[in-house]
Design a protein around this nucleic acid. Structure first.
Length: 674
DNA sequence: GTTAGTTCTGTTTTT
DNA sequence: CAGAACTAAC
């Protein structure tokens, strides 16, 4: 086993972190400090020292991080293998626990997990149910508030009344009903996965005890992003033993608005007396000037743990700041620059990233890059599951999997149209409610409903019958994909799509998505030891199927938001739209805390760059169809002069430009010479 | 039950 | 300006 040799090659701080195995440990891992290497090695080392693999638990936030860690640990302990440690996201860990234990909390084991879209339609249904016709608020805000209170671990009744009284008031009325509705639907939302797992631990000490005995070594990655529920959950699991190692960087906490509580990492030492604190400050990613800029910017935050990144490497070129006339000029300059640098530095398109505050800023860059025939891929935006065809078909699978899932039934029932409209659905719902039966059962007894026409009733019964047939068909797990394909065929979904989308291209895209969906089921069935429809729906709900980010950042220049860029690195980075009201965002410049989070966002962007960093801003920008003058971001003033170089159309990078010109001339000559 | 206008509103989004 | 969601008329 060469793990010891690997450990010997670490720097002193890293080594210390790997070798500290018992008791609370806080690893403050600066950007690019080899964090992943340390935690994977630490996991491997625990096994090496004789810990049973199933007693080691590492929790991450993203599937991607979990996957990466699993692979790296597996590679390290290869041959020594009697199983691997449990490496999982918070959500899937809790889901797995709940799958086994949720009956303690009065849910059935076949519960469904609702995504945001389903949450919204559920709230809409409730709203119309109680005839709440006030539309001066956005349903999303209510949802945000609900989610927030779940994440903050505050019971519905005792929510802190704050800024927006209107939303507050509506939320207070809606929350209990929403909660009830989920229960009757035998469904949980994302936040419930964590909340219920915590509830389980709190209310059932015997269950908690079992998990405490099992998981003897805990690691939590990205601890700065944990919210209150996650904090409590981890604390409970750690128990008296307190073999808890948390890894994170308070300077990269950028999810405060989603309930993350950076205080968790700041207070860790207080919460766990006797904590060993290890700072990883040596940076292996970026050149000196980039780090100088990063350090200088983040230093302006009050609430943080002092850290200074340093490198043993070269200072590299200075950070270049370009002032553009407007958004189009900015995009054009960036696109030009990318093509030039690629040639000059002999790089691949994949080595470049354009980072911006909001996804909607991608557009001008896409246009400019297209004009120069530069390949690119945009990360983020509408995700695969938000596509109508996926949601429609998932609704079918969900009602097949959980017959109490009225919400999914409601969606599937009339898509494609089969003559069961809103009125019919309303009557069916009333019938179901009067008899306290599920909506699906009401469908199968539709003929008993006097107000329903014979045709409609027949249609409803036929639908219920079909669902019943597929419920048994999906029991044959090895042929689930075939069954699914047969279902899509039976409901003539492809025809429906072709009619719905006028242009053949759009329809084509949708059909491709649909086919990909079917094959993802066969992929799941092939990979899993004991595949079930429910299991497949879970991988969907937790978006845990392989392609995600790797594919997205797969080819060409990467266009990406600050948030999605966290954890990634690129040789050349362009940070764009560095202006007041964008970064910091207008809505975040109110409080000091919010500005600090914006600054961390900027910091995350800066520290993505390995060799070269550019920042751009515009003098004018079109906002909501209106042209207006804008100011450069206050954060730019925080970068020391000796680390930067300012450019604009009148003052281009003289020496670089000249070299580029010569290079491209040579390039053209070479091409002509061929 | 479907469709074409009309109004409204604008971050970020690991699961 | 552009996309979504809602409304009013087929």
């Amino acid at each position: 086993m060469d793990i010891e040799r690997k450990i010997a090659r670490l720097n002193p701080r890293q080594k210390e972190a790997v070798l500290h195995t018992e008791g609370p440990l806080l690893i403050l891992a600066g950007a690019g400090s080899g964090k992943t290497r340390v935690i994977t090695m630490r996991a491997a080392y625990l096994l090496h020292r004789g810990a049973a693999p199933r007693s080691v638990l590492a929790v991450t936030f993203t599937n991607k991080a979990a996957r990466e860690m699993r692979e790296r640990v597996a590679a390290m302990v290869r041959g020594g293998g009697n199983g691997s440690p449990v490496i999982s996201t918070f959500h899937s860990l809790c889901l797995n626990i709940l799958r086994r234990e949720i009956e303690h909390l009065g849910f059935r084991k076949d519960f469904t997990v609702y995504d945001t879209g389903e949450q919204i339609s559920l709230l809409r249904n409730i709203l119309s149910d109680i005839r709440f016709h006030d539309k001066t608020f956005r349903i999303e805000s209510v949802l945000e508030r609900i989610s927030r209170s779940k994440n903050d671990c505050v019971p519905a009744a005792a929510m802190a009344s704050s800024d927006d009284d209107k939303i507050e008031e509506v939320t207070e009325r809606l929350y209990p009903r929403y909660h009830e509705a989920l229960r009757t639907l035998n469904a949980l939302d994302f936040d419930d996965l964590l909340l219920f797992a915590l509830k389980l631990f709190r209310e059932h000490p015997a269950v908690l005890q079992r998990y405490r005995e099992r998981f003897r070594y805990l690691m939590v990655d990205e601890y700065q992003d944990t919210n209150r529920v996650q904090y409590e959950f981890v604390g409970m699991l750690a128990g008296e033993r307190k073999n808890l190692c948390v890894v994170g960087d308070d300077d990269q906490s950028i999810y405060g608005w989603r309930g993350a509580h950076p205080g968790n990492i700041l207070d860790f030492e207080k919460d766990f007396p006797g904590t060993a604190v290890i700072r990883l400050e040596q940076n292996y990613r970026s050149t000196g000037h980039i780090l100088q800029a990063a350090n200088a910017v983040i230093k302006n935050n009050e609430k943080r743990m002092e850290k200074t990144l340093w490198t043993a490497g070269a200072p590299g070129p200075r950070v270049r700041i370009f002032r553009a006339a407007n958004a189009e000029d900015e995009a054009r300059w960036v696109a030009d620059r990318i093509s030039m640098i690629r040639l000059d530095r002999n790089l691949r398109w994949e080595d470049f990233a354009i980072i911006y505050r909001a996804n909607l800023f991608s557009r001008p860059f896409e246009e400019a890059l297209r004009k120069l025939r530069v390949p690119y891929s945009v990360v983020g935006g509408t995700s695969y599951f938000e596509n109508r065809e996926i949601k429609d078909l998932a609704a079918y699978l969900k009602i097949i999997s959980n017959s109490r899932d009225d919400l999914s039934l409601l969606r599937a029932a009339n898509v494609p149209k089969r003559g069961i409209g809103t009125t019919a659905l309303g009557r069916l719902s009333v019938f179901a409610r009067e008899r306290s039966i599920s909506l699906l059962e009401a469908f199968s007894r539709a003929r008993e409903i006097a107000e329903l026409g014979a045709k409609t009733a027949g249609s409803a019964e036929g639908f219920a019958g079909m669902i019943g047939r597929y419920q048994s068909a999906f029991q044959k797990r090895r042929v689930m994909a075939e069954t699914f394909a047969a279902l899509v065929e039976e409901i003539r979904y492809r025809d429906y799509i072709r009619e719905l989308y006028k242009t053949p291209e759009a329809a084509m895209r949708k059909i491709e998505n649909l086919d990909a969906f079917i094959s993802s089921l066969s992929g799941y069935a092939a990979e899993e030891a004991a595949p079930t429809l429910q299991g497949f729906l879970e991988t969907l709900a937790l978006s845990d199927f392989i392609e995600e980010k790797e594919e997205k950042t797969g080819s060409g220049v990467t266009l990406i938001s600050f948030h999605s860029a966290k954890g990634l690195e690129f040789p050349v980075v362009f940070i764009c739209g560095v202006e007041e009201d964008i970064l910091p965002h207008k809505k975040s410049s109110g409080t000091a805390d919010a500005v600090e989070e914006e600054r961390r966002l900027f910091y995350v962007g800066i520290t993505r760059a390995m060799k070269e960093l550019y920042m751009t801003y515009a003098g004018h920008r079109t906002k909501y169809g209106r042209q207006s003058a804008v100011n450069p971001s206050r954060f730019l003033d925080e970068i020391p002069d000796e680390a930067l170089k300012r450019l604009n159309n009148e003052a281009p990078d003289a020496e670089d430009e000249e070299r580029f010109a010569r290079k491209s001339l040579a390039h053209i000559k070479a091409m002509l010479g061929e």
